[in-house]
Design a protein around this nucleic acid. Structure first.
Lengths: 224, 224
DNA sequence: GGTTCTTGGTGACATCGTCACCGAGGTCAG
DNA sequence: CTGACCTCGGTGACGATGTCACCAAGAACC
């Protein structure tokens, strides 16, 4: 990958740092790449870096005792993966793991640099606190959805989010089930219903959105 | 309430601070009391203090659009209420509110003191990060429970947690339902079943545990 | 071509959420 | 005291969802 001197530009919260700290941050960190599918972090592993995502997406999921998985949230380019921070500070055991969904480029900030910047810059601290808050809010929203939203509404929203430019979602029913914390069979049934309503067409491993309007009406129907 | 010079002793993560910073923290903060039932924070309100809980418990819950509530977590004495931090930094809108479950005594650290300490002490930063991590882990655990655990198992655990010294839980079915994010009727049914099995006895507004062993077996039956 | 794996479809059943309704007991004004 | 009203809890019916068992079609692999 290209040497990228000013990756800081990609992170809203870091652009405000004074030039000297930006320079120190660039010097004291390292750019890493992972191919799609890489396990970026997992329980029991002590990370010694804070990761900032430059390109790609990382899915963070919880593996339960029974072997099933729940999707927790997705880290996008321009965001940081605060779970690795928690891990870095060795504060708690956690049980979530992170997998690169696409090829991923990230900046790794080692603990020493992290500590130094956290001490010297309020903007940097705000950046980190903001990342934590963001995740907590995401989790609140997720819990609200799980408890109160009907599965068809949640699936409709998720299809709209995951669709590419051509209106196609590349995912098996199993994958969609994991995203929503439900069973494959439930996804199959609901997609069958969507198909009967002519909102989608299906083929092996993909869903084509025919009527976004229908899905959007359903997704909006309950408070969103 | 009593003037309490060394409340810092009650917070594990703060005891390590050097004496001068401890002194500054005590000077730059204020002790507050709230009677049981007080709304300590709520959406839309900008707090300008970080709260550390000295006595009592605070329940943090999410109010949904439909008016229902989900219990998210409980803040105990010796812990901090990081949601107010998120709010203090004015970083995100959140939709959770906090209610004093009992009479509550708390230390309020104003933003200026917070910033100063965060800049000067790594131990203080670790204390804050640790509080965030703790909440995130709690939420992971909650999501896991909601998605994978049977309601009878969750209710059994919760009864064991909430029981007082005499083995009595003072709560209506409605309150228990809110704790678990389920409906009163479901709680009534499951408690009815527990009663048939002679694990509990019920009267208006309270549940007496007769056989902790039975409840514990059930609670442990699924991974916990 | 045959075997095996992945994907998805389906029916039966258990659990859970929702709704409607009721009754028991407590509170309170008159 | 007593009737109106409220809170609490019990129950049946039904729909939504999770679980299980099983099957069929397509893909992959030898």
């Amino acid at each position: 990958m290209q040497i990228e001197d000013n990756w800081i530009e990609r992170f809203q919260g870091l652009k405000r740092l004074p030039a000297e700290l930006q320079e120190e941050l660039v010097k004291g960190s390292q750019i890493l790449s992972f191919p799609a599918g890489t396990q970026i972090f997992e329980p029991g592993q002590t990370a010694d870096n804070l990761l900032l995502l430059m390109d790609g997406t990382v899915r963070v999921q919880q593996r339960s005792a029974t072997g099933r998985e729940v999707f927790l949230y997705r880290v996008h380019a321009g965001e940081s993966c605060v779970l690795t921070t928690a891990c870095m500070l060795a504060l708690e055991d956690y049980s979530a793991d992170g997998v690169a969904e696409t090829d991923v480029t990230a900046v790794a900030i080692p603990r020493a640099t992290f500590d130094d910047l956290a001490a010297r810059s309020r903007d940097f601290r705000d950046f980190i606190f903001s990342a934590y808050s963001r995740r907590i809010i995401d989790l609140f929203t997720l819990i609200d959805d799980i408890v109160f939203q009907r599965m068809d509404v949640r699936l409709a929203s998720r299809l709209l989010e995951l669709a590419d430019d051509t209106g196609t979602v590349h995912a098996t029913h199993q994958v969609l089930g994991t995203e929503l914390g439900t069973a494959r069979e439930v996804v199959s049934r609901i997609l069958g219903e969507f198909q009967r309503r002519r909102w989608i067409e299906q083929s092996r491993g993909e869903v084509r959105l025919i009527s976004r309007a229908g899905l959007e009406r359903l997704a909006r129907s309950a408070g969103d």
